[in-house]
């Protein structure tokens, strides 16, 4: 028994090192004085962060990415609310196959989605733009949002709705007074997850980017230039902190939702 636990400890230790290796190196190189991203380290500097502040192209890319991420978050959450509500509350013809189809982008290789959207846009004679990336992102984020929101709607006792109705409220008011407050944490979590996925998405963005780059597309372009690498490390550190911050907020809301509906906590999302 003791040996087994010992094995596990070593195994988990190595695993965490493997898992966190890149994430730990990111800030290490971001604060490293040398312009070459390799060991040994040569000293502490915040220079690379200040470089970020003056980089105009980066700011444009960041603004594009933010715009896309916000739009994606709002629209995929909206579409997901409808789908999650429909699938958890109503039984309708072909529900399983419709839901399966809507969830398909979750298991489809992203390159396929990128390629097929590219084909349609070119064939239809549209220009590649930030909109084409946004559409692709809404498509891949919606299934994640549905997964989160379905559990939020599923945790909702149907009799709460009936009780509200029975006590004399209209359907419309029931939605805003009872359903919406109770799934609100799920909606916030869904918005944040979609935002985070979109902000980091590269494969589709690379296929569908026109002349305006998103942040990951910009990073991809810079990876070729060794001199730019420390700056990218600083950027990566900032992005990581933003992502973790957003995730912590999302998790907080999810937990609050669980507490509110009085259902036992069953672990993380995804």
């Amino acid at each position: 028994m003791r040996g087994k636990i010992g094995f596990f400890k070593w195994f988990i230790g190595f695993f965490l090192l493997f898992l966190y290796g890149p994430a730990i190196l990111l800030p290490v190189f971001a604060f490293n004085a040398s312009s070459i991203v390799s060991f040994p380290l040569s000293g502490f500097t915040t220079e690379w962060f200040s470089v970020l502040l003056t980089n105009g192209t980066l700011h444009v890319a960041a603004r594009n990415s933010l715009l896309i991420a916000v739009t994606t978050a709002i629209f995929s959450t909206l579409l997901a609310v409808l789908a999650a509500r429909a699938s958890t509350r109503f039984s309708f013809f072909g529900r399983r196959s419709i839901m399966g189809f809507v969830m398909l982008p979750m298991v489809l290789p992203e390159i396929i989605i990128g390629v097929s959207l590219l084909v349609v846009i070119i064939q239809m004679g549209f220009e590649l733009s930030l909109w084409s990336i946004t559409m692709g992102h809404i498509l891949i984020c919606t299934p994640f949002c549905i997964a989160i929101l379905s559990s939020a709607f599923m945790n909702l006792d149907k009799s709460l709705e009936e009780a509200s109705f029975d006590l004399g409220q209209t359907r419309w008011n029931t939605f805003w007074l009872v359903i919406f407050p109770l799934v609100m944490p799920g909606i916030v979590a869904s918005l944040l997850i979609a935002f985070t996925i979109s902000l980091d998405e590269f494969i589709i963005a690379f296929f569908l980017a026109g002349t305006e780059p998103t942040l990951p597309v910009y990073i991809w372009g810079q990876l070729r230039f060794p001199a730019k690498l420390p700056g990218l490390m600083a950027l990566g550190t900032v992005l990581l902190l933003v992502s973790i911050g957003l995730l912590l907020i999302a998790d907080f809301f999810r937990r609050r939702g669980i507490r509110k509906t009085g259902i036992e906590n069953t672990g993380g999302f995804l």
Binding site: S159, S164, D166, L167, P181, G262
Partner: peptide, 14 residues
């Protein structure tokens, strides 16, 4: 003109 007491009570948790 009816009101109901649900099996799960359906007390609004919020």
């Amino acid at each position: 003109p009816t009101n109901m007491v649900f099996q799960s009570y359906a007390i609004f948790p919020h």
